[in-house]
Amino acid sequence: MDRLKIERVGGVAGFGGPHLKSRGEVTLSDLSAADQKAVEQLFADPDKVPAARRGQADAFSYRITRGAQTIEVPEHAVPSAIRNSVKDVLE
């Protein structure tokens, strides 16, 4: 369960419509120790992740899947290495 699958969702009116998907993958062991710890904390107790900040109604959130577990967290709580792994693709 070393691979994380990431999907960026939301944004302004569901940015990009139904045909533009924002996805990425990253190997947990390739992340820095600090980013690995941040990811572990997100999965350990996803209910403690701070909600989207006030005034960010159209902010992105990230669905992160590790094995059979999927969490969805606001963009500000996601380590930059994970955010940077996401690319936009047309389907």
Rank of each mutant, 00 (worst) to 15 (best):
83 R>G: 11
77 A>N: 04
45 D>V: 03
49 V>C: 11
36 Q>N: 03
77 A>M: 03
35 D>S: 13
64 I>A: 06
46 P>K: 01
33 A>V: 14
30 D>L: 11
34 A>L: 06
64 I>S: 06
81 A>T: 14
31 L>P: 02
21 K>V: 10
43 F>P: 11
35 D>F: 07
36 Q>D: 03
36 Q>L: 01
81 A>P: 04
34 A>Y: 00
57 A>I: 03
25 E>K: 04
26 V>C: 01
70 T>D: 05
28 L>R: 04
23 R>C: 11
80 S>M: 10
53 R>V: 02
52 A>D: 12
73 V>L: 08
73 V>S: 14
31 L>M: 03
64 I>Q: 02
21 K>E: 11
42 L>G: 04
59 A>D: 14
44 A>V: 04
36 Q>R: 13
79 P>V: 09
23 R>N: 08
56 Q>C: 09
81 A>R: 06
75 E>Y: 02
53 R>W: 00
79 P>Q: 09
66 R>H: 07
34 A>P: 03
72 E>L: 04
65 T>P: 00
40 E>K: 13
52 A>E: 04
41 Q>R: 11
34 A>F: 00
65 T>C: 07
80 S>N: 06
83 R>T: 14
26 V>K: 04
43 F>I: 07
78 V>I: 09
76 H>N: 09
22 S>A: 15
74 P>T: 05
39 V>I: 06
44 A>L: 05
31 L>G: 04
63 R>M: 13
43 F>H: 05
28 L>Q: 03
67 G>Q: 11
33 A>P: 10
24 G>D: 05
57 A>T: 08
82 I>H: 05
42 L>T: 03
38 A>M: 07
40 E>Y: 01
35 D>G: 04
42 L>K: 01
72 E>I: 12
30 D>S: 15
73 V>E: 10
45 D>E: 13
22 S>K: 08
65 T>E: 12
53 R>C: 05
41 Q>G: 06
86 V>G: 14
36 Q>H: 01
38 A>N: 03
77 A>L: 04
63 R>Y: 07
31 L>T: 08
63 R>T: 11
74 P>N: 06
85 S>C: 14
68 A>I: 07
42 L>A: 12
46 P>W: 00
32 S>P: 06
41 Q>T: 15
27 T>R: 12
48 K>W: 01
51 A>W: 05
22 S>H: 11
21 K>S: 12
44 A>D: 13
51 A>D: 15
31 L>F: 02
51 A>Y: 09
66 R>Q: 14
86 V>K: 02
36 Q>M: 04
56 Q>F: 10
60 F>Y: 15
68 A>Q: 15
86 V>S: 10
23 R>K: 12
62 Y>W: 10
35 D>N: 06
46 P>E: 00
44 A>R: 09
83 R>F: 00
41 Q>L: 15
35 D>K: 04
39 V>R: 01
